[in-house]
Design a protein around this nucleic acid. Structure first.
Lengths: 344, 344
DNA sequence: CTGAAAGCGCTAACAA
DNA sequence: TTGTTAGCGCTTTCAG
């Protein structure tokens, strides 16, 4: 039918024909079938987004950034939660390919030591699928475009801030160091210590097996209790995630440890409630929404880079690293007013 | 090809043929095209979920509940965020129908006084589309299955709790009363007062135009300041949402008002951080995940009610109302230990 | 500018 | 048990 033309490129159809068609469509409540169109054109205007944990506000913010960019450009989002399980991530990639998504935004899960989904990601790249990796960059994959946050820098800033406050023993509640993001935070902490010529006490570094929220809380709680029981307890705590901080604060409150007098505390991730605590929490804010936006924009470039020549163009790989900021509040400084530390 | 058979109903295919087929599929990295299948079978194994604000943990929890049930049953979720805008909601329903989703789960937005999406919902029902409404039930629609929370009861429990604590002037920071949920919370508050024969002071009831998170915070903040400036200020606050509570607490802290001595506070919605506040926050917990689960299960019933007779079966409408619980913490009682008030 | 024909990848129905 | 045919609703190509 000419109907298709009228709907897709109205300009090449005679005015009155077009009006007639549109009117009839309206009356019949006609709705084009997206599946048929996708089948024919091999394009779906859908983009798959795979995140490891959507109960975590961090990821929701990232997705918000992605959404702002991508739905504005006419794409629909298919959002999947891998739950930090490589197997699930794999299945979800599979499902999205079946839906013939036009592109993919993936934050790789920490699971799957099998490396299964890593090789899948390589396959995707080889096949020319528009793909941008978010936040985490597993060691195994190369030549991929990504948007990440400089975790090393964030941890370094936080550590330096605590050292500047006179702390010499800083407990590090690191998350999952199997993740590059986790390891980088440890690195930043170590750099801070090294810069001041301080020795590293391995006992002050605690890690977790996974980034799952519940586990984070539990690890924050129990590790903090262990710290408090040490002969030579730390005087400051650096929590590498919000959930860890929640557990840590719960432990401190339970033991009636004064913050910041007896224990200073800094955490990754600013939340709406961090200013409500007594004292308000010093944090390293992560540009989550911005990370999503940038990743969306980057993907969009690939998406709009139409393969006119029949097959996938060879694309330049791009990397963006976003800088986190330290926001100093009372939890880490005696009598301090809140202020933002500018970037170096 | 017989391939289709081997993949979909392996049992009706000879063993060796099947093995051969599967092996070849593996080797070629074959992936069935979901669009083609949907086109042919008119079923997509996709379910659309439309929520008003995914930056709000409330809705994310609801979606988690839905996901647990539906992905377990082999359905993929299409999640859309209407941002409380009726127009967007409308477009999203439209888009989902285009994708030929098998069913729809909708939390209607408070926008669109046009009633446009209301009539759309009626259309969907008339067309026999499996549909379950979540959390909110706009006045205009009838004969629809839904899962909601008893907001009236929640507000009533909270009010009674405060009255039992000796409070006689309770400020109500109501959200958007254009929403049935908002109005019900006001009703529960009024019932509490009435039961004790107390007069209602309209000045103590503040409402907002929308449920957007930022607005909630702002309204909580400014209304609380106004309360504090009254000659006859309330001695207790009932916040109908978390975001409102955040604003209210910020205002109280700013004015150095002692909680609960000078102002008791109760809020809807338990969050991971509510116990970290000083004092910990008394809340009405809403069974969000359970609401999602129940809605998912309800939809699943419709989905599995296969239209063998060729067209949509006339289905019984069902309604589930979930009961919220009051968790008493120190923010509403002097020197109280935390405890849960059992249902009546 | 509009119509006709073919085919995207799949499955339902029927035939072998 | 397997192969064949047709057609889901759309767009593309080629004729009119």
């Amino acid at each position: 039918m000419t109907v298709s033309r009228a709907l897709n490129r109205p300009e090449i159809v005679a005015d009155d024909t077009r009006h007639k068609i549109l009117e009839v469509c309206e009356r019949l409540n006609y709705r084009p079938n997206a599946n048929a169109r996708s089948l024919r054109t091999n394009t779906s205007h859908q983009v798959g987004v795979i995140i490891p944990d959507w109960r975590n506000a961090f990821w929701i913010d990232v997705v918000s950034g992605i959404e702002a960019v991508l739905t504005g450009a006419g794409f629909q989002l298919l959002i999947a939660n891998s739950n930090e399980q490589g197997r699930r991530e794999d299945l979800q990639i599979e499902a999205m390919l079946s839906q013939s998504v036009d592109g993919l935004l993936i934050a790789p899960s920490d699971g799957a030591p099998s490396g299964d989904s890593l090789s899948r990601i390589d396959e995707l790249l080889a096949a020319g699928m528009p793909l941008v990796i978010i936040d985490r960059l597993p060691a195994g994959i190369a030549n991929v475009s990504c948007v990440t946050i400089d975790n090393e820098s964030g941890a370094y800033k936080a550590t330096r801030h605590l050292l500047d406050g006179g702390h010499r023993r800083i407990g590090l509640l690191a998350g999952n160091i199997n993740l590059d993001t986790g390891q980088q935070r440890v690195d930043g902490y170590l750099r801070g210590l090294k810069e001041r010529g301080l020795a590293v006490d391995e006992q002050l570094i605690r890690t977790a097996e996974t980034n799952a929220a519940l586990v984070g809380r539990e690890v924050g709680y129990s590790s903090t209790l262990e710290f408090l029981d040490m002969d030579n307890a730390p005087t400051a705590l650096l929590c590498t995630s919000n959930t860890i901080a929640i557990g840590a604060i719960a432990a401190l409150q339970e033991r009636r440890v004064q913050i910041p007098e007896e224990m200073a505390i800094v955490s990754f991730g600013d939340m709406e409630w961090t200013t409500l605590l007594s004292p308000p929490l010093t944090v390293i804010t992560q540009p989550t929404i911005e990370m999503g936006r940038q990743a969306g924009l980057m993907l969009l470039e690939y998406l709009e880079d139409v393969p006119e020549d029949g097959h996938k163009r060879h694309r330049k790989q791009r990397r963006i690293v976003l800088e986190p900021q330290l926001i100093v509040r009372a939890s880490s400084v005696r009598g301090a007013a809140a202020k933002t530390i500018p970037d170096d």
